[in-house]
Design a binder for these strands. Structure first.
Length: 411
RNA sequence: GCGGACGUAGCUCAGUCGGUAGAGCGCCAGGUUGUGGUCCUGGAUGUCGUGGGUUCGAUCCCCAUCGUUCGCCCCA
């Protein structure tokens, strides 16, 4: 029995789960197209270096969460833990650096070896939007606007809050890191154990610590905004004013740091309070140095990823669509007529099916179960007049219809 | 990776102070030989997550393991 269960942290998408999942994907595909995106798909695994080099040697994803293995030729392969690195690799591999900017919609499974929880899986799925080759703050605002519109169209925007921050350019970020380390080092003994480790490895990460002692210490800590150089400050102002012009509400949150090392300037998260510790539902930022870090030319980028499972859990009910027509012959004598009608309907673009067996009652039950909108009942008497009975299942009304009129009536 | 809770029918759950189990929903059949969704009647369901231990006897107690879940870490 154990072998027949899905592997820990993975799950099947069937029925309601599947409807929710594809509702998210379909909505994202449609909305990102409104912003000019083309859909891409890249391989599910890459050379390990693609992720190890870009996500940062100290990030948890790299140090302990990657699904990494050697293939038969001894090459180190990693199942992608996120989308951006693979997309950037594809830009370089395909020589797309001459046709920028590119706006990309992306969707598919990601893999991280973590302890599963609600809204966190080892194989999870993301929708992803990237704008590559645009250094203007308008691109940041547009990426955020796109994410916001998706959340709105999914009906979950009201429960989420957009948090934005800036990490500045490299010079600003380095200056801030120094100031922060200076400050926190004075209270090192009071920091939580986790944060003492972070102080050496990745001090900015202390900013989003959930330890109450850390939070108290951070109240008087230096703030990034005081360490931005003129260029970085102007960029940040540009993003904020474009967001205002798009009519997108946001709060500034100097604690938003984001996990991967490749981020600079804009960082943002849409957060909900309804998913416990997994509250970040859509997050991203700018990654101007990433392409160069991968060995490509210096090309700026901005993008976000969103967890489909987390979005799907927040959706209101997604009912099954009542779109089928059930074709019901009274008996085997009516099969030829029934198959002819099935064919006529399908060729006219109308979804229709006929059960493989069963009497009329059984077939009516099935029609109800598949949420058919109407049943075409084919009996000897009506057939003699080149007609059939059409019963609409929502209100139970029934009438006789000429076979030639079926497609027009049911379209 | 660390700490807590949980694991009984397809689903949601009850239960046994240790004597091999029950409800609702769903499913199947009939009431209705050419008509579903409502209603009535009847029926089938489970190695009580898995392995081991204690016991005359374990679904119940103990240990391990797998899975789920909550928090931490981290992140979508």
């Amino acid at each position: 029995m154990k072998a027949l269960q899905p592997v820990r942290g993975t799950r099947d998408l069937i029925g309601d789960d599947a409807r929710r999942h594809f509702r998210v994907v379909d909505t994202a595909r449609r909305v990102t197209a409104l912003y000019g995106a083309s859909e891409w798909a890249t391989p599910i695994f890459e050379s390990t270096a693609v992720f190890a080099r870009t996500l940062g040697e100290t990030s948890d994803v790299v140090t302990k969460e990657m699904y990494t293995f050697e293939d038969r030729s001894g090459e180190s392969i990693t199942l992608r833990p996120e989308a951006t690195a693979g997309i950037c690799r594809a830009v370089i591999s395909n020589g797309l650096t001459q046709t920028l900017p590119q706006k990309i919609f992306f969707q598919g499974p990601m893999f991280r070896y973590e302890r599963p929880q609600k809204g966190r899986y080892r194989q999870f799925h993301q929708i992803d939007f990237e704008i590559i080759g645009a250094a203007e703050p308008l691109a940041d605002a547009e990426a955020i606007a796109c994410g916001w519109q998706i959340l709105r169209e999914l009906g979950i925007a009201d429960g989420t809050v957009l948090n934005i921050n800036t990490l500045g350019d490299k010079a600003s970020r380095d200056a801030y890191r120094t100031a922060l380390v200076d400050y926190l080092s004075r209270y090192e003994a009071d920091l939580s154990a986790d944060s003492r480790t972070r102080l050496a490895r990745n001090p900015l990460r202390i900013l989003d610590s959930k330890d109450s002692g850390d939070i108290a210490l951070l109240a008087a800590a230096p703030v990034i905004y005081d360490h931005l150089n003129a260029e970085s400050a102007a960029f940040y102002d540009g993003v904020k004013s474009a967001l205002a012009q798009f009519g997108i509400p946001f709060v500034e949150n100097p604690r938003i740091v984001r996990g991967f090392d490749y981020y600079n300037h804009t960082a943002f998260e849409f957060v909900t309070t309804e998913l416990g510790a997994q509250g970040t539902v859509l997050g991203g930022g700018r990654y101007d140095g990433l392409m160069e870090q991968m060995g490509g030319p210096s090309i700026p980028g901005i993008g976000w990823g969103a967890g489909i499972e987390r979005l799907a859990m927040l959706l209101a009910d997604v009912p099954e669509a009542a779109s089928m027509i059930a074709v019901i012959p009274m008996g085997e004598a009516q099969y030829p007529a029934a198959l002819g009608i099935l064919n006529r309907l399908r060729n006219a673009g109308i979804a229709a099916e006929m059960a493989y067996r069963g009497n009329v009652k059984r077939r009516m039950e099935r029609a109800n179960r598949i949420h058919a909108r109407a049943a075409i009942i084919i009996g000897e008497d009506e057939l003699a007049r080149d007609a059939v009975a059409v019963k609409f299942l929502d209100d139970g009304t029934q009438r006789e219809v000429a076979i030639g009129d079926l497609a027009a009536l049911l379209r």
